[in-house]
Design a protein around this nucleic acid. Structure first.
Lengths: 188, 188
DNA sequence: CGTCTATTTGAATGTACTCAAAAGCGGTGG
DNA sequence: CCACCGCTTTTGAGTACATTCAAATAGACG
Protein backbone atom coordinates (compact mmCIF):
# COMPACT_ATOMS: atom_id res chain seq x y z
CA UNK A 1 0.00 0.00 0.00
CA UNK A 2 1.24 3.36 -0.99
CA UNK A 3 -0.36 5.84 1.41
CA UNK A 4 1.80 7.63 3.96
CA UNK A 5 -1.00 7.28 6.49
CA UNK A 6 -0.26 3.58 6.88
CA UNK A 7 3.30 4.11 7.99
CA UNK A 8 2.05 6.90 10.24
CA UNK A 9 -0.39 4.54 11.92
CA UNK A 10 2.11 1.69 12.00
CA UNK A 11 4.51 3.77 14.06
CA UNK A 12 2.29 2.79 16.98
CA UNK A 13 0.06 -0.15 16.02
CA UNK A 14 0.21 -2.85 13.35
CA UNK A 15 -2.28 -3.09 10.49
CA UNK A 16 -3.24 -6.15 8.50
CA UNK A 17 -3.57 -5.96 4.73
CA UNK A 18 -7.35 -6.19 5.02
CA UNK A 19 -7.43 -3.34 7.52
CA UNK A 20 -5.38 -1.22 5.16
CA UNK A 21 -7.72 -2.04 2.33
CA UNK A 22 -10.67 -1.14 4.52
CA UNK A 23 -9.14 2.19 5.45
CA UNK A 24 -8.13 2.97 1.91
CA UNK A 25 -11.75 2.67 0.84
CA UNK A 26 -13.16 4.41 3.88
CA UNK A 27 -10.97 7.52 3.75
CA UNK A 28 -11.89 9.86 0.90
CA UNK A 29 -9.07 11.81 -0.63
CA UNK A 30 -9.54 15.56 -0.51
CA UNK A 31 -7.53 17.78 -2.82
CA UNK A 32 -7.11 21.45 -1.99
CA UNK A 33 -5.76 24.34 -3.98
CA UNK A 34 -3.54 26.99 -2.39
CA UNK A 35 -5.57 29.28 -0.11
CA UNK A 36 -8.60 27.00 -0.17
CA UNK A 37 -10.28 26.24 3.19
CA UNK A 38 -10.94 22.71 4.38
CA UNK A 39 -12.78 24.04 7.45
CA UNK A 40 -14.45 27.39 8.04
CA UNK A 41 -14.77 28.95 11.48
CA UNK A 42 -18.38 28.60 12.66
CA UNK A 43 -19.11 25.46 10.63
CA UNK A 44 -19.72 22.13 12.31
CA UNK A 45 -16.43 20.31 12.31
CA UNK A 46 -17.15 16.88 10.88
CA UNK A 47 -13.73 15.52 9.95
CA UNK A 48 -10.24 14.85 11.10
CA UNK A 49 -7.66 15.15 8.32
CA UNK A 50 -4.41 13.39 7.66
CA UNK A 51 -1.98 15.31 5.46
CA UNK A 52 -0.66 13.06 2.70
CA UNK A 53 1.06 16.03 1.06
CA UNK A 54 1.09 19.80 1.23
CA UNK A 55 0.82 22.11 4.23
CA UNK A 56 -1.94 23.93 6.10
CA UNK A 57 -2.56 26.50 8.77
CA UNK A 58 -5.30 26.44 11.44
CA UNK A 59 -6.17 29.90 12.69
CA UNK A 60 -8.77 31.92 14.53
CA UNK A 61 -10.05 35.27 13.34
CA UNK A 62 -11.54 37.43 16.09
CA UNK A 63 -14.07 40.26 15.88
CA UNK A 64 -11.32 42.88 15.57
CA UNK A 65 -9.88 41.08 12.56
CA UNK A 66 -6.91 39.75 14.48
CA UNK A 67 -5.63 36.36 13.32
CA UNK A 68 -4.09 33.83 15.71
CA UNK A 69 -2.46 30.73 14.30
CA UNK A 70 -3.23 27.70 16.45
CA UNK A 71 -1.19 25.19 14.49
CA UNK A 72 0.52 24.38 11.24
CA UNK A 73 0.26 20.96 9.64
CA UNK A 74 2.60 19.47 7.07
CA UNK A 75 3.01 16.08 5.42
CA UNK A 76 2.31 13.26 7.89
CA UNK A 77 0.46 15.42 10.46
CA UNK A 78 -3.14 15.19 11.60
CA UNK A 79 -5.22 18.33 11.71
CA UNK A 80 -8.69 19.56 12.62
CA UNK A 81 -10.41 21.85 15.11
CA UNK A 82 -10.16 19.17 17.77
CA UNK A 83 -12.61 20.78 20.17
CA UNK A 84 -15.21 21.19 17.47
CA UNK A 85 -14.52 17.70 16.13
CA UNK A 86 -14.77 15.65 19.32
CA UNK A 87 -17.87 17.51 20.46
CA UNK A 88 -19.35 17.78 16.95
CA UNK A 89 -19.93 21.50 17.34
CA UNK A 90 -18.98 24.72 15.62
CA UNK A 91 -15.33 25.23 14.80
CA UNK A 92 -13.40 28.04 16.44
CA UNK A 93 -10.84 27.70 13.66
CA UNK A 94 -10.49 27.94 9.95
CA UNK A 95 -8.01 25.66 8.20
CA UNK A 96 -6.47 26.81 4.94
CA UNK A 97 -4.09 25.21 2.48
CA UNK A 98 -0.75 27.00 2.21
CA UNK A 99 -0.07 25.16 -1.06
CA UNK A 100 -1.67 22.37 -3.04
CA UNK A 101 -2.70 19.67 -0.55
CA UNK A 102 -3.75 16.04 -0.62
CA UNK A 103 -5.65 15.08 2.51
CA UNK A 104 -7.37 11.96 3.78
CA UNK A 105 -10.70 12.62 5.42
CA UNK A 106 -11.68 10.71 8.56
CA UNK A 107 -15.24 11.48 9.61
CA UNK A 108 -16.47 11.57 13.20
CA UNK A 109 -18.76 8.61 12.60
CA UNK A 110 -16.07 6.50 11.03
CA UNK A 111 -13.65 7.24 13.85
CA UNK A 112 -16.24 6.18 16.43
CA UNK A 113 -16.74 2.98 14.48
CA UNK A 114 -13.00 2.39 14.31
CA UNK A 115 -12.76 2.72 18.08
CA UNK A 116 -15.33 0.00 18.65
CA UNK A 117 -14.61 -2.28 15.70
CA UNK A 118 -10.82 -2.12 15.72
CA UNK A 119 -9.95 -1.33 19.34
CA UNK A 120 -6.26 -0.87 18.68
CA UNK A 121 -7.23 2.49 17.21
CA UNK A 122 -7.95 3.52 20.77
CA UNK A 123 -4.29 2.90 21.42
CA UNK A 124 -3.20 4.74 18.30
CA UNK A 125 -5.16 7.85 19.10
CA UNK A 126 -4.30 7.60 22.79
CA UNK A 127 -0.65 7.96 21.79
CA UNK A 128 -1.49 10.68 19.27
CA UNK A 129 -3.38 12.76 21.84
CA UNK A 130 -0.77 12.06 24.49
CA UNK A 131 1.90 13.57 22.25
CA UNK A 132 -0.35 16.43 21.22
CA UNK A 133 -1.06 17.22 24.88
CA UNK A 134 2.64 17.25 25.75
CA UNK A 135 3.38 19.52 22.79
CA UNK A 136 0.62 22.00 23.63
CA UNK A 137 1.54 22.06 27.30
CA UNK A 138 5.12 22.81 26.31
CA UNK A 139 3.83 25.60 24.11
CA UNK A 140 1.72 27.09 26.89
CA UNK A 141 4.75 26.91 29.16
CA UNK A 142 6.91 28.71 26.62
CA UNK A 143 4.26 31.35 26.12
CA UNK A 144 4.29 32.30 29.78
CA UNK A 145 7.98 31.73 30.52
CA UNK A 146 10.03 32.74 27.48
CA UNK A 147 10.76 35.97 25.62
CA UNK A 148 9.56 36.46 22.06
CA UNK A 149 13.13 35.99 20.84
CA UNK A 150 13.45 32.66 22.66
CA UNK A 151 10.10 31.42 21.38
CA UNK A 152 10.99 32.40 17.82
CA UNK A 153 14.32 30.58 18.08
CA UNK A 154 12.64 27.48 19.54
CA UNK A 155 10.07 27.44 16.76
CA UNK A 156 12.52 27.65 13.88
CA UNK A 157 14.81 25.09 15.52
CA UNK A 158 12.03 22.62 16.27
CA UNK A 159 10.00 22.96 13.07
CA UNK A 160 12.42 23.67 10.20
CA UNK A 161 10.16 21.82 7.72
CA UNK A 162 7.30 24.10 8.64
CA UNK A 163 9.39 27.26 8.54
CA UNK A 164 10.26 26.74 4.87
CA UNK A 165 6.56 26.66 3.96
CA UNK A 166 5.33 29.76 5.75
CA UNK A 167 5.77 33.51 5.92
CA UNK A 168 7.16 35.50 8.79
CA UNK A 169 3.78 37.09 9.30
CA UNK A 170 2.31 33.65 9.91
CA UNK A 171 5.02 32.87 12.44
CA UNK A 172 4.14 36.14 14.17
CA UNK A 173 0.47 35.16 14.48
CA UNK A 174 1.60 31.79 15.88
CA UNK A 175 3.85 33.43 18.47
CA UNK A 176 1.21 36.01 19.32
CA UNK A 177 3.13 39.12 18.32
CA UNK A 178 2.75 41.61 15.48
CA UNK A 179 4.71 41.08 12.26
CA UNK A 180 6.35 44.47 12.84
CA UNK A 181 7.62 43.43 16.22
CA UNK A 182 8.89 40.07 15.01
CA UNK A 183 10.79 41.86 12.29
CA UNK A 184 12.41 44.08 14.93
CA UNK A 185 13.29 41.06 17.10
CA UNK A 186 15.03 39.37 14.16
CA UNK A 187 17.12 42.41 13.31
CA UNK A 188 18.79 42.19 16.71
CA UNK B 1 -16.02 0.71 46.56
CA UNK B 2 -15.32 4.05 48.09
CA UNK B 3 -12.55 5.66 46.05
CA UNK B 4 -13.33 8.68 43.90
CA UNK B 5 -11.04 7.32 41.22
CA UNK B 6 -13.59 4.67 40.30
CA UNK B 7 -16.29 7.15 39.46
CA UNK B 8 -13.67 9.17 37.60
CA UNK B 9 -12.76 6.16 35.46
CA UNK B 10 -16.38 5.09 35.07
CA UNK B 11 -17.23 8.40 33.45
CA UNK B 12 -15.73 6.84 30.32
CA UNK B 13 -15.43 3.06 30.75
CA UNK B 14 -17.09 0.48 32.99
CA UNK B 15 -15.21 -1.45 35.66
CA UNK B 16 -16.09 -4.83 37.13
CA UNK B 17 -15.87 -5.40 40.86
CA UNK B 18 -12.78 -7.55 40.39
CA UNK B 19 -11.11 -4.81 38.34
CA UNK B 20 -11.83 -2.32 41.08
CA UNK B 21 -10.38 -4.66 43.64
CA UNK B 22 -7.31 -5.13 41.50
CA UNK B 23 -6.84 -1.38 41.13
CA UNK B 24 -7.43 -0.73 44.80
CA UNK B 25 -4.56 -3.05 45.66
CA UNK B 26 -2.32 -1.89 42.83
CA UNK B 27 -2.55 1.85 43.54
CA UNK B 28 -0.66 2.93 46.66
CA UNK B 29 -2.11 5.83 48.59
CA UNK B 30 0.26 8.75 49.01
CA UNK B 31 -0.40 11.32 51.70
CA UNK B 32 1.22 14.74 51.44
CA UNK B 33 1.50 17.59 53.88
CA UNK B 34 1.09 21.18 52.80
CA UNK B 35 4.12 22.39 50.81
CA UNK B 36 5.48 18.88 50.40
CA UNK B 37 6.67 17.86 46.91
CA UNK B 38 5.41 14.75 45.19
CA UNK B 39 7.80 15.33 42.27
CA UNK B 40 11.00 17.37 42.13
CA UNK B 41 12.24 19.02 38.94
CA UNK B 42 15.19 17.00 37.59
CA UNK B 43 14.07 13.70 39.09
CA UNK B 44 12.92 10.82 36.91
CA UNK B 45 9.14 11.02 36.78
CA UNK B 46 7.92 7.53 37.63
CA UNK B 47 4.26 8.07 38.50
CA UNK B 48 0.98 9.51 37.41
CA UNK B 49 -1.17 10.71 40.32
CA UNK B 50 -4.90 10.82 40.82
CA UNK B 51 -6.05 13.40 43.40
CA UNK B 52 -8.48 11.79 45.84
CA UNK B 53 -8.45 14.94 47.97
CA UNK B 54 -6.48 18.15 48.37
CA UNK B 55 -4.89 20.38 45.75
CA UNK B 56 -1.52 20.74 44.06
CA UNK B 57 0.48 22.96 41.79
CA UNK B 58 2.88 21.88 39.02
CA UNK B 59 5.50 24.51 38.26
CA UNK B 60 8.85 25.12 36.65
CA UNK B 61 11.64 27.07 38.28
CA UNK B 62 14.16 28.49 35.83
CA UNK B 63 17.79 29.52 36.33
CA UNK B 64 16.81 33.09 37.14
CA UNK B 65 14.52 31.91 39.94
CA UNK B 66 11.37 32.64 37.94
CA UNK B 67 8.45 30.31 38.64
CA UNK B 68 5.93 29.34 35.96
CA UNK B 69 2.84 27.41 36.96
CA UNK B 70 2.00 24.79 34.34
CA UNK B 71 -1.13 23.45 35.98
CA UNK B 72 -3.14 23.18 39.16
CA UNK B 73 -4.80 19.93 40.22
CA UNK B 74 -7.67 19.54 42.64
CA UNK B 75 -9.88 16.66 43.76
CA UNK B 76 -10.66 14.31 40.87
CA UNK B 77 -7.85 15.52 38.59
CA UNK B 78 -4.86 13.58 37.28
CA UNK B 79 -1.44 15.16 37.53
CA UNK B 80 2.19 14.51 36.68
CA UNK B 81 4.96 15.89 34.49
CA UNK B 82 3.47 14.16 31.47
CA UNK B 83 6.49 14.59 29.23
CA UNK B 84 8.81 13.16 31.87
CA UNK B 85 6.33 10.41 32.67
CA UNK B 86 5.60 9.02 29.22
CA UNK B 87 9.27 9.14 28.23
CA UNK B 88 10.52 8.08 31.69
CA UNK B 89 12.97 10.93 31.82
CA UNK B 90 13.79 13.87 34.05
CA UNK B 91 10.92 16.09 35.09
CA UNK B 92 10.82 19.71 33.97
CA UNK B 93 8.36 20.38 36.77
CA UNK B 94 8.02 20.19 40.50
CA UNK B 95 4.63 19.32 41.97
CA UNK B 96 3.79 20.60 45.44
CA UNK B 97 0.82 20.15 47.72
CA UNK B 98 -1.10 23.36 48.40
CA UNK B 99 -2.78 21.68 51.38
CA UNK B 100 -2.95 18.20 52.85
CA UNK B 101 -3.41 15.77 49.93
CA UNK B 102 -4.41 12.18 49.44
CA UNK B 103 -3.16 10.83 46.11
CA UNK B 104 -3.28 7.50 44.32
CA UNK B 105 -0.04 6.55 42.66
CA UNK B 106 -0.08 4.90 39.23
CA UNK B 107 3.40 3.83 38.15
CA UNK B 108 4.63 3.80 34.57
CA UNK B 109 5.02 0.02 34.62
CA UNK B 110 1.56 -0.56 35.99
CA UNK B 111 0.02 1.74 33.40
CA UNK B 112 1.78 -0.10 30.58
CA UNK B 113 0.44 -3.35 32.02
CA UNK B 114 -3.07 -1.92 32.24
CA UNK B 115 -2.93 -0.94 28.58
CA UNK B 116 -2.15 -4.48 27.50
CA UNK B 117 -4.08 -6.46 30.09
CA UNK B 118 -7.23 -4.31 30.26
CA UNK B 119 -7.41 -2.67 26.83
CA UNK B 120 -10.35 -0.45 27.74
CA UNK B 121 -7.80 1.63 29.65
CA UNK B 122 -6.49 2.65 26.26
CA UNK B 123 -9.91 4.16 25.69
CA UNK B 124 -10.01 5.81 29.09
CA UNK B 125 -6.66 7.50 28.67
CA UNK B 126 -7.37 8.29 25.04
CA UNK B 127 -10.30 10.37 26.23
CA UNK B 128 -8.29 11.82 29.10
CA UNK B 129 -5.49 12.94 26.78
CA UNK B 130 -7.97 14.15 24.18
CA UNK B 131 -9.54 16.47 26.74
CA UNK B 132 -6.17 17.53 28.09
CA UNK B 133 -5.00 18.37 24.56
CA UNK B 134 -8.08 20.46 23.87
CA UNK B 135 -7.65 22.31 27.16
CA UNK B 136 -3.99 23.07 26.58
CA UNK B 137 -4.59 24.15 23.01
CA UNK B 138 -7.26 26.51 24.26
CA UNK B 139 -4.80 27.85 26.79
CA UNK B 140 -2.10 28.38 24.18
CA UNK B 141 -4.67 30.18 22.03
CA UNK B 142 -5.67 32.45 24.90
CA UNK B 143 -2.03 33.18 25.67
CA UNK B 144 -1.42 34.51 22.19
CA UNK B 145 -4.81 36.11 21.53
CA UNK B 146 -6.15 37.60 24.77
CA UNK B 147 -5.14 40.41 27.12
CA UNK B 148 -4.00 39.68 30.65
CA UNK B 149 -7.33 40.97 31.94
CA UNK B 150 -9.28 38.61 29.67
CA UNK B 151 -7.15 35.62 30.61
CA UNK B 152 -7.55 36.39 34.29
CA UNK B 153 -11.31 36.64 33.91
CA UNK B 154 -11.47 33.39 31.96
CA UNK B 155 -9.40 31.58 34.57
CA UNK B 156 -11.49 32.62 37.56
CA UNK B 157 -14.72 31.93 35.66
CA UNK B 158 -13.63 28.51 34.43
CA UNK B 159 -11.88 27.25 37.56
CA UNK B 160 -13.68 28.71 40.60
CA UNK B 161 -12.83 25.58 42.67
CA UNK B 162 -9.16 26.12 41.99
CA UNK B 163 -9.27 29.85 42.64
CA UNK B 164 -10.44 29.34 46.22
CA UNK B 165 -7.37 27.18 46.94
CA UNK B 166 -4.63 29.40 45.59
CA UNK B 167 -3.02 32.80 46.00
CA UNK B 168 -3.05 35.63 43.53
CA UNK B 169 0.68 35.26 43.10
CA UNK B 170 0.15 31.70 41.94
CA UNK B 171 -2.46 32.86 39.44
CA UNK B 172 0.09 35.39 38.19
CA UNK B 173 2.69 32.67 37.57
CA UNK B 174 0.03 30.65 35.73
CA UNK B 175 -0.91 33.61 33.52
CA UNK B 176 2.74 34.50 32.94
CA UNK B 177 2.69 37.99 34.46
CA UNK B 178 4.18 39.47 37.63
CA UNK B 179 2.11 39.58 40.83
CA UNK B 180 2.49 43.37 40.84
CA UNK B 181 1.02 43.66 37.38
CA UNK B 182 -1.87 41.31 38.14
CA UNK B 183 -2.65 43.43 41.17
CA UNK B 184 -2.75 46.52 38.95
CA UNK B 185 -5.00 44.77 36.42
CA UNK B 186 -7.47 43.83 39.15
CA UNK B 187 -7.69 47.36 40.52
CA UNK B 188 -9.08 48.52 37.22
C1' DC C 1 1.38 36.89 69.25
C1' DG C 2 5.09 37.31 66.19
C1' DT C 3 7.00 36.27 61.82
C1' DC C 4 6.90 35.42 57.22
C1' DT C 5 4.79 35.92 52.91
C1' DA C 6 1.33 38.01 49.95
C1' DT C 7 -0.53 42.17 48.23
C1' DT C 8 -0.54 46.91 47.06
C1' DT C 9 1.48 51.21 45.51
C1' DG C 10 4.54 54.07 42.84
C1' DA C 11 8.44 55.52 39.87
C1' DA C 12 11.55 54.36 36.30
C1' DT C 13 12.60 51.28 32.50
C1' DG C 14 11.93 48.03 28.94
C1' DT C 15 8.89 45.42 25.88
C1' DA C 16 5.35 45.31 22.46
C1' DC C 17 1.68 47.58 19.73
C1' DT C 18 -0.35 51.04 16.41
C1' DC C 19 -0.16 53.61 12.45
C1' DA C 20 1.97 55.11 8.38
C1' DA C 21 5.00 54.74 4.64
C1' DA C 22 8.76 52.72 1.91
C1' DA C 23 11.05 48.78 0.09
C1' DG C 24 11.13 43.98 -1.31
C1' DC C 25 9.27 39.83 -3.18
C1' DG C 26 6.34 36.40 -5.42
C1' DG C 27 2.47 34.95 -8.01
C1' DT C 28 -0.20 35.75 -11.98
C1' DG C 29 -1.45 37.10 -16.33
C1' DG C 30 -0.16 39.01 -20.53
C1' DC D 1 9.54 35.23 -19.61
C1' DC D 2 8.80 39.64 -18.14
C1' DA D 3 6.24 43.21 -15.78
C1' DC D 4 2.79 44.43 -12.89
C1' DC D 5 0.06 44.03 -8.73
C1' DG D 6 -0.66 42.81 -4.19
C1' DC D 7 1.07 41.22 -0.11
C1' DT D 8 5.05 40.80 3.05
C1' DT D 9 8.74 42.83 5.33
C1' DT D 10 11.12 46.67 7.09
C1' DT D 11 11.62 51.15 9.35
C1' DG D 12 10.40 54.78 12.50
C1' DA D 13 7.73 57.65 15.75
C1' DG D 14 4.48 57.79 19.30
C1' DT D 15 1.71 55.21 22.76
C1' DA D 16 0.27 51.45 25.73
C1' DC D 17 1.37 47.38 28.25
C1' DA D 18 4.30 45.00 31.49
C1' DT D 19 8.51 44.55 34.39
C1' DT D 20 11.80 45.83 37.99
C1' DC D 21 12.89 47.52 42.31
C1' DA D 22 11.73 49.38 46.67
C1' DA D 23 8.82 50.21 50.41
C1' DA D 24 4.42 50.14 52.96
C1' DT D 25 0.44 47.47 54.30
C1' DA D 26 -2.25 43.50 55.03
C1' DG D 27 -2.98 38.56 55.96
C1' DA D 28 -2.03 33.94 57.17
C1' DC D 29 0.31 30.28 59.57
C1' DG D 30 2.65 28.25 63.25
Amino acid sequence: MDLHIFSNIQKHISLSESEKLYLRNALPVKELKRKELVLRQGQICRNLYYVESGSLRAFNLNDDGKESTIMFAIRDWWVTDMNGFVNQKKAQLSIEALEHCRLLELSYDLLERLYTEIPKFERFFRILFQNAYIREQQRAFHNIALSTEQRYQYFIDKYPDIVEKITQKQIATYLGVTPEFLSAVKKK
